[in-house]
Design a protein around this nucleic acid. Structure first.
Lengths: 349, 349
DNA sequence: CTCACCAGAACGGCAACGCGA
DNA sequence: ATCGCGTTGCCGTTCTGGTGA
């Protein structure tokens, strides 16, 4: 009597209110019930502490009111920021949100779509750094219940929110060039991931545009973590003992930029005096570091919001809906780490 | 034919394999089936792409294989760290984890227990900063499926993992005293929350033990965010223009400590030369800041792991189980921010 | 008497249907 | 015809009892 408790069902409520189960259900869901019956049922519900059984309801309704956000790494604040807006939108619409981190691939994303197939999840917002062929195939199957954030093949008939991060990199690099920097290094994200390659391309293009030669020794690979940014500085130091150290470092994300700044400081290199640093994502901490970090915002919060709205709209809308792709523009946020302390002679072309 | 798709049920599989639904179920769940039948069923399953319906299963089994972790703020890395270990343990045991952030009270924790009552969740690991009476009542009701992290009334018959954070504060303050610091300020967490009050008590006790007078003007209130730490420094500056600035700041968590260090640097005060700083939580970033941050680890990861193990153990164990409370010990991690550059004359008592 | 399997009854809620007023 | 509400069947799975070999 104490531990197992008696699960109170809709029938108990019906009995107590002196009506049938159908009527109770109607009171709970639809409005088509006269006031006094409604009241009798309501009091019975609260007296018994009745709570509808979720499993039974979703079995019948074919709906769980639950969605998931799949991100590569909860440890990266940019995804946390994104999660906050997703959470907010979901809560507003009465959806419960499951936050799932794949820990950069340790958890298999394809397994996650299983939750969709099992009908445990109504839909999913998916951020994937490295969409392989089998994942793409699964996404295609689950298309009407998925919204992607990031870059995926154009022919994938799925809702998506995109940002032109290559353009963002060009903005950032152009800003460094305008500040008189010429030896601009780049710390890349995890090679093989779509964002890392896209940003690498933006870097090369920006240099090309400005007529500044691309130097391979100024490219260092990282993995989007702060530690890899820290180590990247040593790689730049060690690469060519005879070479001149870069006067600027563009980082594929803010976490690496923070690591870079920390190591530069340890080595006695002044930021931005000796070296300018620019990151990407514009995480909250960018405004709190020492010095504050110039960063290219990819509007994570807005992307999360848009993706969630699109997903829920599609779920609400019964029939088929043509896949939509929304674009978001990156924005450069200039702070202390890239202030032009040093302006070299000789203007840009 | 294209969009609605046909949901393939266990009956379709049964028909194709030439057996009954019950046999298919047994193949999927239990092992009590001869090999050739088993094989026929398995091929039918994969040919049809059958995936069991989660709602139907949990309706029958009264189990969802899903738990939730409720934390006050995903923006605080210490909870993310905790979430990672919870996620890991849950995944190991075949449970799906929902991560829910109450955004410091914006989301009502009591609403969350609803998921438990609806049977959408098998159990819940709950971190609450401010357990009010009605939440406590609800926890009491849901006790067999909840594990708490943090401080709750002793008579609450619920599994819990605790850490003596007051003792942690004493360790930290003692360390500062040993380094010769005497004017030790404290930046508090959100007043009214259990951890903030506990840590405030630890601070007073530590001073008392050492025979150092407690000075109210050295206490500043924060709210566990980096920004509040930043502003706290100004409050210390402005409080008594004539007074000597503190030679150490103990912060109720690392986020505030990072904010404090940032502001001190802006104001030209050297850390640890002029002011030592000690934080609490030992988040990953403590090892990456400039200077690296001395911090009292409250073993968030271990607490998350323990709580999840206790919860799942209780869920697996059918019958009643006496509530268990596990204690974890805090540990001081000394880094650069508290190195004793300045040793005042006059030894401690 | 064991083994392999099947039919049917739950599980709890929802909604179509239809009956009486 | 409308309104209010009880009845019934079904959602998909698991489990129980039972049958035949």
């Amino acid at each position: 009597m104490s531990v197992p408790a008696k699960p109170v069902t809709i029938l108990d409520v019906a009995k107590r209110a002196g009506v049938s189960a159908g009527t109770v259900s109607r009171v709970l869901n639809r409005a088509n019930v006269p006031l006094d019956t409604r009241r009798r049922v309501s009091t019975a519900v609260s007296e018994l502490g009745y709570v509808p059984n979720h499993a039974a309801r979703s079995l019948k309704r074919r709906t769980t009111e639950q969605i998931a956000l799949v991100i590569p790494d909860v440890g990266n604040p940019v995804y946390v920021q994104m999660a906050k807006s997703v959470q907010r939108v979901a809560a507003e619409r009465g959806y419960r949100l499951s936050l799932i981190s794949t820990e950069n691939g340790v958890v298999d994303e394809r397994q996650l779509l299983r939750g969709l197939h099992e009908r445990q999840l109504d839909g999913m917002v998916l951020v994937s750094l490295r969409p392989g062929p089998s994942l793409l195939r699964q996404i295609r199957e689950a298309a009407p219940r998925v919204c992607l954030i990031g870059s995926f093949p154009d022919d994938l008939p799925v809702d998506a929110v995109r940002v032109d991060s290559a353009h963002g990199v060009r903005q950032g690099v152009a800003h460094l060039l305008a500040g008189g920097r010429r030896r601009i290094a780049m710390v890349h994200g995890t090679r093989g991931t779509v964002p890392a390659e896209t940003r690498a391309r933006g870097y090369r293009d920006a240099l090309l545009e400005a007529g500044v030669p691309f130097r391979p020794e100024l490219s260092v690979d990282g993995d989007f973590t702060m530690g890899s940014g820290y180590r990247a500085v040593d790689a730049l130091e060690g690469a060519r003992p005879d070479a001149v150290f870069p006067d600027a470092v563009f980082c594929a994300n803010d976490m690496m930029a923070l690591g870079v700044m920390r190591r530069l400081r340890e080595l006695g290199r002044d930021v931005p005096g000796d070296v300018a640093v620019v990151g990407m994502d514009d995480i909250d901490m960018a405004g709190m570091s020492a010095p504050t970090l110039t960063s290219v915002s990819l509007r994570a919060e807005e992307r999360g919001r848009l993706a969630t709205e699109m997903l829920l709209e599609r779920l609400a809308h019964g029939g088929p809906l043509a896949p939509r792709v929304v674009h978001v523009l990156p924005a450069l946020v200039v702070r202390e780490s890239s202030t032009a302390h040093v302006v070299l002679a000789g203007g840009p072309s």
